[in-house]
Amino acid sequence: MYDSGKVIIGLVIFVAIATFPFWFGMGKAAPMPEPQLPKGKKECVESKEFMRSTHMQLLNEWRDQALRDGDRTYVNHEGKKIWISLQNTCMKCHDNKEVFCDKCHIYANVKPYCWDCHFIPKESKQWN
């Protein structure tokens, strides 16, 4: 009794599951997202590389520093002082969530809950 039929079905299921990402998009390339940077602004609070990998951590630190310690001034690596506020500092330059935040966030399926409370700059003029 070899049960080859059952073994083959099992293997097909295994291969299908194991290679799921390969056939799911049927080889369609998903190009790397290109977030639109705010026009006319040269620099962010820190370097581009730093912001790219660590913005969530920075926002986290900002949040605790501002809310819990009541200290709303951030000194960046160049010694420049920056007023800590997602709403009133970050979003003043990055005034379009769709072309900036969402580009990468949708790509990497990262859905932070910022916008449950904080106003989306573009939306803020529309939603009510």
Partner: peptide, 11 residues
């Protein structure tokens, strides 16, 4: 309502 966009809402 007229909103204050400088201050967030809650969830």
């Amino acid at each position: 309502r007229k909103l204050n966009y400088e201050f967030p809402t809650r969830m």
